[in-house]
Amino acid sequence: MANDIMDRNNLMRNWFNNDSWMNGVPSIFDNNFPEDSNLKTDIKETDKDYEVHVDMPAFDKKNIDINYENDVLTVSGHRDSFNNHNDKNGDMIMSERSSGRFMRQYHLPAVDQENIQASYDKGVLQITLPKLEDKKDSGHHVDID
């Protein structure tokens, strides 16, 4: 199913980008944000928990916020400006690194929010969200009067 959606997306992208009447017009499929501004993420689900890995290079741990509310995990943070690498003439050939505020949200239902754990190492934020244990319905017998 996901591959079908991706194939359709690629067909639409090719149609819009290759049609002559669209020349010079930015595509709706273009990413208008710096590549790292959308916080690249991997999410793994097991029977017991969710594991979320978020690329957050050059973030200071104290500038990262993690919240879980109403089945939504929110990861946000800010990254300060990078040092100016211009020479004395101000000659910058290319600058792609960005600074500022970043945020992503993930819908992850039925999490034991008291036991969420997070760590940050080498630019990767790892969050483990244990799932709530299934409450087994033991049943209840009702007598008829």
Rank of each mutant, 00 (worst) to 15 (best):
H53Y: 09
P57G: 07
N32Q: 14
M92A: 12
N67L: 14
K48H: 01
P34I: 00
I64Y: 08
L108P: 06
S76H: 05
H140E: 10
V72D: 01
V124A: 06
E35P: 02
S95K: 09
K62Y: 01
F33H: 14
T41Q: 07
T74D: 02
D80P: 05
T128A: 00
D71C: 04
D4H: 03
K122G: 06
L129G: 04
D30A: 15
K44L: 13
A118I: 02
S76F: 02
H107G: 01
T128E: 07
I144V: 15
D87C: 14
Y106K: 01
D4W: 02
P34S: 15
D121H: 12
A58I: 07
F102H: 00
P34Q: 13
K136P: 00
M56K: 11
W21K: 12
K88R: 11
Y50M: 03
N31D: 10
K136G: 03
E35R: 10
E96V: 13
K40V: 05
L129Y: 07
N10Y: 05
D19I: 07
S76W: 04
N70R: 07
V54W: 10
K44I: 12
N14P: 01
F102P: 00
E133S: 09
Q105T: 08
I127E: 08
H53I: 05
I144E: 08
I127R: 03
P130A: 08
P130D: 15
K136F: 04
E51V: 15
T74A: 04
V72S: 02
E35K: 08
A2I: 05
K88G: 06
H107W: 03
A110R: 08
Y68M: 00
N17T: 15
W21T: 12
G77D: 09
Q113M: 06
S138Y: 10
E69Q: 11
V54I: 08
F16P: 03
D91Q: 13
R101A: 00
D4Y: 08
T41F: 04
K48V: 06
H78F: 06
P26S: 11
N10G: 00
L125F: 06
V75G: 06
N32M: 12
L39N: 04
M12P: 00
D134L: 07
A110S: 08
K136V: 14
I127A: 11
M22Q: 09
A110E: 14
K48A: 11
R104T: 08
M1Q: 10
S20G: 15
F33Q: 11
T74E: 05
S119V: 03
M94S: 14
D80S: 04
S119T: 13
A2L: 02
Y106F: 12
G139P: 04
N38D: 02
Q117K: 13
I28W: 13
V72Q: 03
N63Y: 09
H107N: 13
Y50N: 15
G77W: 03
N23D: 11
I93W: 13
W15E: 12
